[in-house]
């Protein structure tokens, strides 16, 4: 985006990466994307007992243009899917997505005509959070894990390198159907 993307690989870039990651993770602005049951738990997380304010992100943004985290909380219907993608496109980069609950992650128990079987069909997902609905503690755990991810995210040439590595790893990964072991 800015100057930091133009830095050459090396000590300077990693230092900037650490600083940028620290700043970014410390003030993540979530966009409200409450859909169903999980939205209530998401609101609970922001309310008194669980107090998401401790992590500097209690203010849920009404407008996607001021947000950099989308918590997809609930089942995404076929009718909602284009809306969700539009909201995601309106968010400025860098942006992250937490898929909250099984319905958003995989369709969950609603394996039918109406529900998109996993929000990763529409937007790239950073954290999949299981549960129906996940407890507020689980959501906070997911958010903290995302903070770690943001902290260690790369910039500039390092980011391109990381993306290449991730793609190579994904191409080599064993498909689920060919995996052995317990049925899960």
């Amino acid at each position: 985006m800015g100057l930091e993307e133009k830095l050459p690989s090396g000590f300077l870039l990693t230092t900037v990466e650490q600083a940028a990651g620290w700043v970014r993770k410390s003030s993540v602005f979530p966009a409200t994307f409450g859909l169903a049951c999980c939205a209530i738990e998401m609101m609970t997380t922001g309310a008194g007992r669980y107090d998401l304010a401790r992590f500097g992100m209690e203010v849920f943004r009404g407008s996607p243009r001021q947000a950099d985290l989308m918590i997809v909380a609930g089942r995404v219907s076929q009718k909602m899917a284009p809306v969700l993608r539009q909201v995601y496109d309106q968010m400025p980069a860098p942006k992250w997505v937490i898929s909250m609950g099984v319905c958003a992650s995989s369709g969950g128990m609603f394996n039918n005509y109406a529900i998109v079987q996993g929000v990763d069909h529409i937007v790239p997902v950073d954290i999949y959070l299981p549960g129906c609905p996940p407890r507020p503690e689980m959501l906070m755990d997911a958010i903290l894990k995302l903070h770690q991810k943001i902290q260690s995210s790369k910039l500039g040439v390092n980011r391109e390198e990381a993306a290449r590595e991730a793609e190579a790893a994904a191409l080599k990964a064993l498909p689920t159907i060919e995996m052995k072991g317990l049925l899960r």
Partner: peptide, 11 residues
């Protein structure tokens, strides 16, 4: 409305 239609009755 219908943005949260889940097809529960069919399921």
């Amino acid at each position: 409305i219908g943005y949260l239609h889940t097809g529960i009755e069919k399921n």
